[in-house]
Design a protein around this nucleic acid. Sequence first.
RNA 1: GGAGGGAUGGCCGAGUGGACUAUGGCGCCUGUCUUGAAAACAGGUGUGGGAUCUCCCACCGGGGGUUCGAAUCCCUCUCCCUCCGCCA
Length: 425
Amino acid sequence: MLDINLIRDDPDRIRDAMRLRNEEPAIVDLILKLDVERRKLLTESEKQKAKRNAVSKEISQMKDAAARQSKIDAMRAVGDAITGLDEQLRQVDEQLHKNLSSLPNIPDPSVPIGAGEQDNQVVKTVGKKSEYNFTPKPHWELGPELGLINFDQGTKLSGTRFYVLSGAGARLQRAIISWMLDLHIRQGYTEKYLPFMLRSDILYAAGQLPKFIDNLYHDAEEDFWFVPTAEVPLTGLHSDEILEEASLPIKYTAYTPCWRREKMSAGKDVRGIKRGHQFDKVEMYKYCLPDNSTAEHEALLKDAEDTAAGLGLTYRVVAQCTGDLSFASQRTFDIEVWAPGCGEWLEVSSVSNVGDFQARRANIRYRPADGSKPRFVHTLNGSGLALPRIMIAIIENYQEQDGSVKVPDVLKPWMGGIEVIRREP
RNA sequence: GGAGGGAUGGCCGAGUGGACUAUGGCGCCUGUCUUGAAAACAGGUGUGGGAUCUCCCACCGGGGGUUCGAAUCCCUCUCCCUCCGCCA
């Protein structure tokens, strides 16, 4: 959510930001109108309340019964006026809040201008695409052949877009999760184990509701929402809190499964394990001082890059353009790893600086060390990294001509002596 | 699932319709005293919003109601605690 003061003070800046994101700028004028109306009603209501408070005090001290009763009768009208004003105020407030919370974040000036995905900019590419003297297989062939991935069993249990990992495949994923968490701990993050089902107010605080309701799984009986990304509970951890400046930055990492309906993406990426209703992810998250968020963002990107590099993968960093930026973000870098079997760059991480956008909505502030008024923190999030796509990249990159897959060195401590995954005889 | 008890400022805790503009204590900040510190004493110490900016309004777990007036009475929801049952 944006600060209403920003809109009051410099509406043109917000209109420009809307245009850059392919959004309608007219909403800014509606918000300004509602804001004026709200303050008018508020001032009037408070004036009446001040009167009520003063006269009520007088009534409590009056001895003469008749005079007292006539005051009480007169105050009844004031009470009714307040009720009426507050009802109007509530409606205007609701409209204002609805419109205000539908505004996306303002892109950082450094974000490349563009209409959509095609205008994103490749910032750098690290490593080279491996060369093979055979045709590398996609994971949806290699996985089943090696007994690592079973699509039929996933369908049997849960339907389309589900799969079962088996034997060395299940173990490989667990090894990657463990290695990533340990790496992030070394990078200074505190590991969190979180609930995977959440209350609706936590989803609102993180900005998932109401906008992304169609992508979420929900248990109606208990009103639980299944976590779509660890970013949601990690934001909720400190909602409605005032943190001490000295405690910042706070850096968390967490492994969670993630559940998404993927209604919007029906028919897209249907082969293999690239896009499912359930996937695993290790996430990194930071709360920091406003002045430090740009530097913390670059550090977060570096931490995510080190994860891809540590697994020996070829990757590139892509700067999202204004038209592709997600709703809450002011600046985002994607990390994409090369998968030679399916022949595409796979997005395994999105590293975003959302500024105070999420903190304002979740009401997360810090008290400056000088004791002055609380201010909103800045929050940042980045995957480190998304598991199924890392599994794809490892299986496809580490494949040998004989159909086996080598285990990356860093994962060997968790693989119980398995150095090469071979077809079962 | 059943029965009961609770939720008040950073913390503890008093307050059952008007003196609450929330008592008191602890903690914290400032000052006096001191070579310095402690102690003692004095003052201060929540959040948000609005304004005509020395002022006003709201907030006692959330929401709603009764009343001229609600921390206090009523309804409802959430969470916590104790006991019983069930359970990995």
